[in-house]
Each structure stands twice: as C-alpha cells, then as structure tokens.
Design a binder for these strands. Structure first.
Length: 289
DNA sequence: TTCTTTGTTCCGGA
DNA sequence: GTCCGGAACAAAGA
C-alpha cells in the first residue's frame, strides 16, 4: 500500500537509474489499469529523454525532454521495478517491499532504456499511467486539488490550527483528506494518531494546541523515518530473502488488533473500528475518545 | 461465493 | 450552495 514514503523511495530509485536516460521503447502487456492507457502512449514517449522525476503527494511525475509529462500513481498494489539484467545477473530493485524471486505475474508495462528496463507491476491494477501535454498538465484533475505537502515548510502547527477548525468531522477523516494534507494513507494516519495519542474519532475542533503540535511533529517524523528505513531496505535487498525492513517492524497499531499497546506501562489493547469504511486501529487506553 | 483492500469521484441528505 | 458520509468502482487473493 504505497503512501508518500514508498512513492518517494520509488522516485529516488528511479532517479538513480533513468533520469537523463532516453526511453528507447515501450511495451504494454495490459493497458487496462485504473484508467485505460491511451493508445498514443508509446508514440508520445518513445525517443524522449526523462529529464526529471518529481513527486507530488503519491504521484510520480516524469518530465520529458519535449516539455510534456506523464504521471504514475501506484494505487494499492503498484510497484516499479528496475531490471538491470542487461548488465549482469538479473537484479530486481523493487524500490520498496522487495520481493525475491522476481515477479512474473502482473507486469503490465515495460519501459526500455539503454542500461536497464523499468517494469510497472500492479496486482490489482488500481494504479494508473497517464500522459499529459505540457499545457494540459497544469490543469490535471489529479494534481490541482491537492493540499499541502506534509514535508514542506508550509505544513506547520499554525497552518493546521487555522485550517482544522473549518472542518466538523473526525480527525482521522481530515488526515485522509488529500485536499487538506496530501500523501498520507490509512496506514500512516493510524500510526500518527497513535503516536500523538489522539483517538481517530475525535472531532478536529476538539483538539488542543499541544495535540495539534504533536500531530504535526509526528507526521513529519514518521514520514522522514519511513523514507530513511525504506531507503536502507533497498540497500540491503540484494542480500535479503525478500524481507521488508520497515513495513513489518515499525507498525504500532496498524493491523495489530488485539495486541498489547507498545507504550511502556500502558497495558491498553489495540482495537479496531471501521470509520468511513476504512479500518482504524487505536489503543483503548492511550487514545481516549 | 464473499469479503477485504485504497484513492477518487459522485450522489443524496441535512 | 456547502458540508459530510456512504457507495461505487477498479481487480485479485484469501
């Protein structure tokens, strides 16, 4: 379930291999992703150089040498693999949650470069790949309504304080709202609320100054930490047996229903509720409603 | 067969 | 008109 850190890790990996490289060709095995890949996609990209790869929220933005763009969103199960088998033995850099041996199913799109191939793999096909002419890109419906980047300077306690009172709904729903703050998904929101000791159902208007401060602090902290741990997962991958360094190790509440709270001397139990049809996990002692 | 999973969009009620 | 919650949708694995 790629959220901001996983997308950022993917971006960094791709930057290493294909920034300033020419797209020699593209092969599409299955164009039926969340949105059907346009039939001109190959023609639009072939022969173009990728001059920059950036990220906005959970979107990867590929800047092409002719001024056009394409977007990749990983959806629920999308991954981008770098295949360097052209060079030496097959090495698959899976950017996050590495898997060995290499995936054979659900490889939908292949991008061919001089030294490596990049494969878009997506089990559930909820992700998408979309081409934009330079002019159309600015008005992309996916990007224009996005809120503040949590790792940016603009995401501050003052900003949240001002904004949060405009809503009248549970804090969890607000953190999931991409037009307010973008890049967080269900997993990180659950974790952040736990670290901040705030119950997911708390109305945003009821948060005090300290709680807002904690929230902002832990959002930044968990994202930075995840990015750094994910990065080290990539590094260790070639020696690993496909274990993911950070996913299973850092979760305090997500999918931990019935477990004991990890806070010292807490003795609370992790509970699960469904909020806006999303699983929500919290400690029944240190996150009071 | 049914349930779960996520982000986005759409719709209806208040 | 606005706000909010719920449903629908995409597909596959358990």
């Amino acid at each position: 379930m790629p959220e901001l850190p996983e997308v950022e890790i993917t971006r960094k990996t791709l930057q290493k291999y294909i920034e300033n490289e020419y797209i020699l060709d593209i092969k599409i095995n299955n164009r039926n992703l969340r949105y059907k890949i346009d039939k001109n996609f190959r023609k639009n990209l072939k022969g173009k150089k990728i001059v920059k790869i950036s990220r906005r929220s959970k979107y990867l933005i590929f800047h092409l040498s002719d001024g056009n763009f394409f977007l990749i969103h990983l959806g629920m199960s999308g991954r981008i693999l770098v295949d360097q088998s052209k060079n030496k033995d097959l090495v698959l850099d899976t950017s996050f949650y590495p898997s060995a041996p290499p995936l054979v199913k659900h490889n939908h799109v292949f991008f061919y470069f001089k030294k490596s191939n990049v494969i878009y793999n997506d089990t559930r096909r909820f992700g998408f790949i979309k081409f934009y002419k330079a002019k159309e890109f600015i008005n992309s419906s996916h990007l224009k309504n996005l809120g503040v980047e949590p790792l940016s300077k603009n995401f501050t306690t003052t900003f949240v304080k001002k904004k949060i009172f405009q809503f009248n709904k549970p804090i969890k729903n607000i953190l999931m709202d991409q037009t307010f703050i973008c890049g967080l998904g269900n997993i990180y929101v659950n974790e952040v609320l736990f670290l901040s000791k705030i119950h997911p159902l708390r109305n945003s208007k009821s948060l005090n100054n300290l709680e807002i401060k904690q929230l902002v602090f832990f959002i930044k902290k968990i994202l930075v930490k995840s990015i750094s741990l994910g990065g080290s997962t990539i590094k260790d991958f070639h020696n690993s047996e496909g274990k993911s360094g950070f996913f299973q190790d850092t979760f305090k509440v997500y999918a931990k229903e019935g477990s004991a709270c990890s806070k010292k001397n807490c003795r609370g139990i992790i509970k699960k509720i469904v909020l806006s049809s999303r699983a929500s996990f919290f400690c029944d002692r240190c996150q009071k409603e």
